[in-house]
Design a protein around this nucleic acid. Structure first.
Lengths: 254, 254
DNA sequence: CAGTGGTCTAGACCACTTT
DNA sequence: AAGTGGTCTAGACCACTGT
């Protein structure tokens, strides 16, 4: 009579109707199997669907509960980051954004490699010849306790060799300041934002349960002449982040 | 010996290593069960994980194949939409973006309701008093054959009553032109972008299989005085869309 | 018509948490 | 110690696709 999709839809409705509040435990799999007159495996398929949809959360011997919507970090991508008052005492934009939202943000430099062959996507964004152009790669983890974002920053090797950017460890004052100190002036940036299921490595780096999704942001920074200075890939737990573009001037249609 | 997660990881590696090319059929569930020495149900759990991760696609009686990465539409959110040459003969930005990418885009007006109580998120974005502020809602579907985006546009009722925006059917020339014709000048827009699992209605509207994910974009348009004119919610199939913000001026840090 | 994936069952054992 | 969800099995029937 009741297929697992119907059971899933039924439970979904009951939850949406407030029959089970966020955090409340739903009946056990055994009880649901009896209620719907199906086997426990069939109930489990319904619950699996609702877990994947973020509606339910199960903990090993503690039952299945209605999931509370995740706490999202709002991250400014445009106007708000321009406020110089916000760039406090050597805090980067991440620490500042976290502090504004009452969260303890931190950054860990994972690796700095001075000469890596540029992958195709990076070469294209940096306008380097396809093939074996060598680039600098800096990898970072941005955390608020758990890892929230994975950063991979790629820069043309000839631009940054010998500068602070080629050194190990954190770049104090930010990448843009270091670029400026080396005589390069970031003037514009282009961003490409998409969502996709997490790769296996991302799943473990971000501590995602089962099949997680990520937001993938590419930011290409250029100087006034249009020369690319940096290609930055930001991979985030899709459920933990909102990107905000504030006060974009309107010049035409949308 | 082999749990379903190991089997999933094993297959994932084989596919990443190119052992099965995109579009190629992998062995049948029966064959995999025999190879790994497990039951068919266990294999199916592994395959379910890879389907959820977008690695595999199954068709009813035609086997399971390696999924090709979905074709994404690049949608400009900033500089490129300002090019007046692109706004062709009453084509909206959607039709234009699709045409640029060799795709036949179309727009369908789903409903126009003149007086709806504003939901909390809308009231906040339109800076209306919480409670029962009445607003106009226009719902559209943007298609390239399949439905790609769901639009819900909300405007304060007192601003648009009696204008072309309150009429049924398409607004020729675009919402911004209609606002301008009614004496309102859109000057800035703020966008908030996040990803989440699709709600049930979105799943069916967008034709998503199983548990799909969506990108949710809120665009709040204001005039020079900062008065909100429109709150637009755009829900897209997360696998079909990339949002592009071109040539953002850099004024501070990121 | 043979073979595929989709669904379902009635058991079973385990690791773990809660009491 | 009892109860929970996590994993697994060896069957079964079905709808559908390909030939």
């Amino acid at each position: 009579m009741a297929g697992y999709r119907e059971i899933a839809a039924d439970l979904r409705e009951a939850i949406a109707a407030g029959e089970y509040a966020p955090g409340a435990q739903i009946p056990t799999e055994h009880a649901l199997a009896e209620r719907y007159g199906v086997s426990r495996e069939t109930v489990r398929r319904a619950l699996a669907e609702l877990r994947a949809a973020g509606v339910l959360e199960s903990a090993r011997a503690a039952g299945t509960r209605v999931a509370a919507p995740p706490v999202r970090l709002a991250l400014a991508r445009y106007a708000a980051v321009a406020d110089p008052a916000r760039t406090r005492a050597n805090l980067g934009p991440w620490e500042t954004a976290c502090a504004d939202q009452g969260i303890d943000g931190s950054v860990e430099v994972v690796s700095v490699e001075e000469a890596i062959p540029a992958p195709p996507g990076v070469a294209a964004r940096l306008a380097l010849p396809a093939g074996a152009s060598m680039v600098l790669r800096r990898r970072r983890h941005l955390m608020d306790g758990r890892v929230v974002q994975l950063h991979e920053s790629w820069m043309p090797r000839d631009l940054v060799a010998g500068t602070a950017l080629a050194g190990q460890g954190k770049v104090v004052g930010g990448v843009y300041a270091a670029l400026a100190a080396a005589g390069m002036r970031p003037a514009t940036a282009s961003e490409e934002l998409s969502a996709r299921p997490a790769a296996l490595a991302e799943q473990s780096d971000l501590g995602l349960a089962a099949v997680g999704w990520v937001l993938e942001l590419w930011r290409t920074t250029r100087d006034v002449t249009g020369r690319p200075l940096e290609a930055l890939q930001v991979v985030s737990d899709a459920r933990r982040v909102t990107y905000v573009y504030d006060d974009l001037p309107i010049r035409g249609e949308r």
